[in-house]
Design a binder for these strands. Structure first.
Length: 827
RNA sequence: GCCCAGAUGGCGGAACUGGUAGACGCGCUAGCUUCAGGAGCUAGUGUCCGCAAGGAUGUGGGGGUUCGAAUCCCCCUCUGGGCACCA
């Protein structure tokens, strides 16, 4: 028999499919383990290395768990709505539905060649009515529980194309297509109230087995800050100006105030002589898109309104400015400026020559030292009336108390997190199931009328606010409540909505009476292991957490968090750089899969480096894994008569073994331990290395196998048996082929075959101990493990090289560490 | 600018809780072998000196703690990733 990996894979993929080896019946959730990879966006580029690196190793982990006896559910599907398909359609004229389905069909075939344990009977596609019907149900559920509302929000608007642009379609403030200046335009859009869950989203992070990095990103994104909202009054008009600050201790250092240009009070309080200037400034600021603002130099801009506000604490009159460095969307949209102790205020004050007052004395500095830059740390309060001399930390509390007591404001918690804007002025998405009735207002489409189908014959080229608005047939409908003529909402949902609940759908992929069966879902979820790229660290993962909580509160789910344990795969680079079309360094997996097969390709990806760090691709490295597989195949083929199906230990007793047999047995069980530990932790690279070591020992042992005794042959067979099982998650096709070669008739994955190591055999029996003089190694000797410290010391002292180095020196100290070293400190 | 992670042979990378640096693989060198072929086997391979024994040196750079540092502390350089005026 000649080794042909590609043929082996074809054979086993066919067998597995015919026998339903990986079929899962979700009604039985005993020992359940839900292992999920982030589903795939079906782009025209198909499967790239990053996908393989996500799916291959995760499947290895899933197989490992299956071999340990878990009922593993590992589904796959398509995140099929989205902008790229729509853009391609605009360019090529091919309908997004057709291009998407075509891509899905190709990708499915490519995915099958990975040979993962996907149970294809649970495949989902977010762009088909059978799925998006329930995305719409989700919208309505949020709507009915008060978690969806309409509000104004700006969009990027291209006045020439007369269309809404995504951030990525705006390049340096200009429209990607026609290069005209993009402006902001306010539209009424739908939001989900994720901010209501800010606290829980923040607190529950502590309980999750997620990378710390990711949790930190979510914490920063939520951006909780504790402070005080303080009421300032406008001098003369008496208008109230609320500001939020985390530093009430700096109140005596306030020298001016700033309102965001969008703040409604700006117009009202501006004095006549400043009207023109302010009006112009607001207009300019309005022209700027968010992207525009980002690409601007950091030079601060702003204009005075002519109005003055009164500091409630010291009754000082301070000028009120408007400047775009203050954001309307955060806090109250207004700030009290403390240039002495805030970097941005400092910069602004310098630019416009506003007074800078030092009110927090930096430890070690003098009260009259000039401030070179804003001092944002803690210190002693100065120039602060009755608070002078108070420690700033204490001052925060005392001033907050005074503000609350005198009714000047109250303590408040602020979040950076904003509500989730889910409206998209796009065609290729799930329509928002709302009807706007002239009499009843906004009316949700009743559940029994779902799905609101996305019409196929729509002109989706740019022009106009939403493509669906151009379909009279779609727009015009009757009000579900009163029956009079009404209009459908013409926006579609953000695709993050589709992916915020798909993990709930998988176990119920084809259920047509509900989005999911409550009982099954509450048994199979949460997802036990979720694996995907860290680019989703915030948005997708935060939205999914929010949706889970919202559905829990609506009475559908009995758990709090969707993903108990999360792993991010690293990035595979090529020549040190991220693979990208523009760099021309993209490695196409297909050619490698075709010549080496899936097992070898995925094993090489795992061997390249730590999974969570990724690695640099090299064409030549894969031959090492190819050789490894070949050597395995030949070894088993030539020695299969010695295979002994000894489940665990069988008749072999470690303590009765000697010499090579004893060593091989020990190595076998050390490898079982290492591969079990490492695979469980996604440390695939070291697990594969351990398998290679074991194979090296096995090959050496096999060289004179014929001359060996029966028990020695049995140890070989025992080790070969375990080797095949340990190999199985890494090279499933090859392992099943070897398994069959050794006389097995059922797939290796049909039973819980994973071994438990023999704990009596894993400890090293001989260790190398080093002898050092002043920390430098001067001798080494191999001794039985556990040799006493005195014996080690004696041994070291009698070593010639050690004697030589001790020679005329004075022994000061001897440090002996059992099984490790002897170190003589001499002088 | 801020935050996070990292830097180990020619290359990818190992290294427990501070205790033999370089496992495993690629590449390279030599030998053997086969019906040259993307083959197989054996041995060697951090660098420098040496026939060898052995010695010196070595984990981005500089300092420190320690009997002993890739690992801990301080400073610096570089690389990758994330966030963008959050009051």
């Amino acid at each position: 028999m000649k080794y042909n990996q590609v043929e082996i894979e074809r054979k086993w993929q066919k067998r597995w499919e015919e026998e339903g080896t990986y079929h899962i019946d979700v009604r039985d959730a005993t020992d359940k383990l839900y292992c999920l990879v982030m589903f795939i966006y079906p782009s025209a580029a198909k499967l790239h290395i990053g996908h393989w690196f996500n799916y291959g190793p995760t499947d290895t982990w899933a197989r490992f768990k299956k071999l340990q006896g878990h009922r593993v559910f590992e589904p796959m599907g398509y995140d099929a709505f989205g902008l790229p398909a729509e853009n391609a359609a605009v360019k090529t004229g091919v309908h997004p539905h057709h291009s998407t389905q075509e891509n899905v069909n190709d990708i499915r075939e490519q995915l099958k060649r990975i040979g993962a344990m996907y149970d294809w009977r649970y495949e989902i596609d977010t762009s088909v009515p059978e799925y998006y019907k329930w995305t719409q149900w989700l919208f309505l559920t949020l709507y009915n529980s008060g978690n969806a509302y309409r509000g104004k929000a700006p969009v990027n608007w291209c006045p020439d194309c007369k269309t809404v642009l995504a951030n990525e379609q705006v390049v340096e403030g200009l429209c990607e297509r026609c290069s005209s200046q993009v402006i902001k335009k306010d539209l009424v859009q739908w939001f989900f109230k994720i901010t209501d869950y800010a606290d829980e989203l923040l607190e529950k992070l502590d309980d999750l087995d997620w990378p710390e990095k990711t949790k930190l990103m979510q914490r920063n994104w939520i951006g909780k800050s504790v402070g005080v909202e303080i009421k300032f009054t406008v001098d003369g008009t008496g208008d109230e100006l609320n500001v939020f600050t985390t530093r009430p201790d700096t109140l005596f250092g306030v020298t001016y105030m700033v309102l965001a240009p969008e703040h409604p009070l700006v117009e009202k309080i501006t004095t006549p002589e400043h009207k023109d200037q302010v009006k112009n400034y607001i207009e300019e600021a309005g022209k700027k898109t968010e992207i525009d603002r980002q690409s601007l130099e950091r030079e601060k801009t702003g204009v005075p309104t002519g109005a003055y506000a009164v500091n409630p604490l010291n009754n000082e009159k301070i000028p009120v400015w408007t400047a775009d460095y203050v954001l309307y969307s955060y806090g109250t949209g207004a700030v009290m400026a403390v240039p002495g102790h805030d970097e941005r205020d400092f910069e602004f004050a310098k630019t416009f020559d506003l007074p800078i007052r030092n009110v927090i004395l930096e430890p070690g500095k003098n009260e009259n030292d000039p401030l070179e830059e804003a001092y944002i740390g803690e210190g002693t309060m100065i120039r602060s009336g009755k608070y002078t001399g108070v420690d700033s930390k204490t001052g925060i509390e005392q001033i907050s108390d005074e503000i609350e007591e005198r009714g000047l404001g109250k303590r408040k918690v602020n979040y950076r997190l904003r509500d989730w804007l889910v409206s998209r002025q796009r065609y290729w998405g799930a329509p928002i199931p709302i009807v706007h009735c002239p009499d009843c207002g906004e009316v949700p489409v009743p559940e029994d009328q779902l799905p609101v189908e996305l019409p196929m014959d729509v002109d989706f080229r740019p022009g106009g606010e939403s493509p669906l608005a151009r379909s009279d047939e779609f727009v015009n409908t009757g009000c579900p409540k009163c029956g009079t003529a009404a209009k459908r909402d013409v926006d579609t949902m953000d695709t993050f909505v589709c992916s915020s609940w798909y993990y709930l759908r998988f176990p119920n992929a084809h259920l047509d009476t509900a989005p999911f069966d409550k009982e099954i879902t509450n048994k199979w979820l949460p997802v036990d292991k979720y694996v995907g790229g860290s680019e989703h660290a915030v948005m997708h993962l935060l939205y999914a957490r929010f949706i889970t909580k919202a559905l829990r509160d609506a009475g559908y789910l009995s758990f709090d968090e969707p993903f108990i344990s999360l792993v991010h795969q690293g990035t595979i680079t090529n020549q040190g750089a991220k693979m990208s079309k523009s760099k021309g360094n993209v490695v196409n997996p297909n050619s490698f899969v075709e010549s080496y097969g899936s097992d070898i390709f995925r094993m090489y990806l795992m061997f390249m480096g730590p999974y969570e760090e990724g690695g640099d691709w090299s064409d030549s490295g894969i031959v090492g894994i190819d050789r490894f597989s070949r050597r395995i195949y030949h070894l088993v083929r030539d020695n299969n008569v010695h295979f002994t199906d000894t489940g665990s230990n069988g008749q072999i007793v470690f303590t009765e073994l000697e010499g090579d047999a004893r060593n091989l047995y020990r190595k076998c069980h050390q490898t079982i331990k290492k591969v079990t530990d490492d695979t469980g932790k996604f440390h695939f690279n070291t697990a594969v290395a351990a398998l290679m070591e074991l194979l090296n020992d096995l090959s050496r042992y096999a060289q004179n196998l014929q001359q060996k005794s029966d028990i020695e042959k049995a140890v070989f067979g025992h080790t070969m048996y375990h080797f095949i099982v340990l190999l199985a998650p890494f090279a499933p096709h090859l392992a099943d082929e070897l398994w069959e070669m050794c006389g097995k008739t059922e797939s290796i994955f049909s039973k819980a075959n994973w071994p438990v190591y023999d704990s009596t055999a894993v400890a090293a029996e001989e260790v190398t101990v080093v002898a050092q003089i002043n920390g430098k190694i001067r001798a080494k000797f191999v001794v039985p493990a556990g040799t006493t410290e005195d014996a080690l010391k004696e041994m070291a002292l009698s070593d010639n090289n050690i004697k030589k180095h001790m020679n005329d020196k004075q022994l000061v100290k001897a440090i002996v560490v059992k099984d490790k070293l002897v170190n003589f400190v001499v002088r």
